[in-house]
Design a protein around this nucleic acid. Structure first.
Lengths: 342, 342
DNA sequence: CTTCTAAATACAATCGATTGTATTTTTAAG
DNA sequence: CTTAAAAATACAATCGATTGTATTTAGAAG
């Protein structure tokens, strides 16, 4: 049933005009008379001609397409970054291919290989949580394949990164909790393999130190920051006793943990203040609404894209090893309204 | 800086073996000796060979890629459908290209054209809210380009659709509200251009009729079902007076409207019961948690994919005009716990 | 050591668009 | 009306992999 779409050769034959002229006419080249252009365009429409982009890409060695790999497209932060990327790409005439690694290293490898094999002009990556080596990227990078990393800082010394200032964000979030009167603040961090969470922890620790509070490693709880981790974390927090604040490295685990603590009879924010990270939409709607860190998402997508486009255009790699740091902003909501209501 | 990736011809030259043999060796054809295969494979690795998929696709006229167009990838329902699609595609050896129309018709047109131009083997579409004509699909369908529609019923008589039983879902949701004692139920519906919302409205109306309640067209409020519509809808509902139940055609607007009504001092569910549609994750977490309709999301992705694969394999269009209807399930939460708590 | 068959490899065309160069046509100048 | 220059079009190679067919090589049989 599938008919073959018309090609420039069909138009060429139908009109007795060489296919090279047809090609030039369709790309509106100045080398073709307006009159012949007209004939060709009419026939193209008549035959339902649709350019075979594959052939074009093969010949020109340019796909005008960039690839994006994120852990999960459904996460609001990534969806927003993607909006920023799509906007920038649209303005520059690039197509965008979106894929999710589901935080799985094997899948990430597979995706890069597929994208490279499809000869995208470059890729934007927020690495998976399991990614702790850059071998699978270097393989392509050494041939000059343009890659820009965003969100999750990755091998800062060797790559181009666009990130937010996680340290500063954590510092300010923690300091905010201290200001409203928290004395014993637990930090829920992510896997040690991720530099990101190391930075967030450092911000937390330094804020404590700067404000004369003790750092207790028992107050730092590690998990994969998934919804499912909430119960265990809530139990651990309850067992610690006297905790009056929780600073989580993402909203998902903050909300989940908060729910379980509420079920245990803990009143938030009166007994315990809560701060998350990422500004998931759900954070604004839950009870109490969650104080969290906004991550300049759309902007991050735009900035990362522009860097990638530069990299694609450039034949040298002079813009390598560049880290662009965007400003986070603390969004204060009811989960830290503890004393301000007094 | 960008080096060209090695091709089969580079391997061919390096070994003095014809490129056709190299090609066959790399695809592990039985026509090549194990010994030569070995030499070729070694050299391929040495040169960092990566198949140029574009060339392969062009030659074979097969891309092993399907396209997916959804309104928004960040919507939980679509993200789940996509999971189902990716699983099915992985099992069948297809790659998946995901795009979002942002509920914009022009963008939708653009995306189909780009995908077709890239010669994907077929596409899965949940049409945008603005889409009320099928012209831009028919253009491709008449050439036998495989398209399967899902989620939003679209020209059922002419196309292949995978949908849930919206009528039944609405009917059951409304009946559930009547059972718990609601007498004056408002329905928040989406644009008239979408058949989907017509069906949901019909389910609502018939449930009222079947239970001896009056149908009042003033109780049916139309909007784009966005978060931003919540305020106006809440005002309208307040003005109507005596409303004791709201059945919304999606969760987003249900939640937003509910928030505004709460701010006006309305106690939910005591004064007014609420039911949404789609089972967005946020619905489980808000206060009160929202009763809603689960839409067999992952399953829908799988079923739609399998149909598309069939369509791609088939040379006839005997499976055309087929509607697959999946079962919805009502998820009862606190927003309708009105009288059950008595 | 031939001769025939089967297995392995080489040749060459192809997918559809692009582009440098050659050829033809048009236009303008003499 | 001729001729040179400029403009328009045609020719042909190319991008990289695939595949039908032709050719060569190897192995077996006589």
């Amino acid at each position: 049933m599938k008919k073959n779409t018309a090609t420039i050769h069909d138009i060429s034959k139908a009109l007795g005009i060489d296919s090279s002229t047809v090609s030039r006419a369709l790309s509106n080249s100045a080398l073709v008379t307006a009159k012949t252009k007209d004939k060709i365009l009419k026939k193209a429409i008549e035959l339902g001609y649709q350019k075979n982009t594959l052939a074009s890409k093969l010949r020109t060695r340019k796909t005008n397409t960039i690839g994006v790999i994120v852990p999960r497209i459904s996460r609001h932060f990534f969806a927003s970054v993607i909006s920023g990327i799509e906007d920038a790409a649209y303005d520059s005439g690039y197509d965008v291919i979106i894929c999710q690694s589901l935080d799985n290293l094997e899948r990430e490898k597979q995706l890069i290989q597929t994208m490279h094999s499809n000869r995208v002009d470059g890729i934007l990556v927020s690495v998976s949580m399991e990614t702790n080596t850059s071998d699978h990227f270097n393989e392509y990078k050494k041939d000059g394949f343009p890659i820009v990393f965003f969100d999750r800082p990755f091998m800062l010394k060797e790559n181009i990164n666009v990130i937010i200032d996680d340290y500063k964000a954590s510092f300010e979030a923690t300091e905010h909790m201290i200001e409203i009167g928290c004395k014993k603040i637990v930090h829920l961090r992510g896997p040690k393999t991720s530099e990101l969470y190391n930075r967030r922890e450092l911000g937390y620790k330094n804020a404590l130190k700067n404000n004369g509070l003790d750092i207790d490693d028992n107050y730092i709880l590690e998990s994969r920051l998934m919804k499912e981790d909430g119960l265990e974390l809530a139990n651990k927090i309850a067992r610690l006793g006297n905790i009056d604040g929780v600073f989580a490295a993402n909203d998902t685990v903050a909300i989940s943990t908060m729910q379980y603590l509420k079920e245990k009879g803990c009143n938030i924010p009166r007994d315990m203040a809560f701060v998350g990270f990422s500004n998931e939409p759900i954070s604004a709607v839950i009870e109490p609404s969650l104080t969290t860190v906004g991550q300049a998402d759309v902007e991050m997508g735009k900035v990362a894209s522009l860097l990638l486009f530069e990299l694609i255009k450039n034949t040298t790699d002079k813009i390598n090893n560049q880290v662009t740091i965007l400003e986070p902003n603390l969004i204060i909501r009811n989960s830290t309204s503890k004393f301000s209501k007094k």
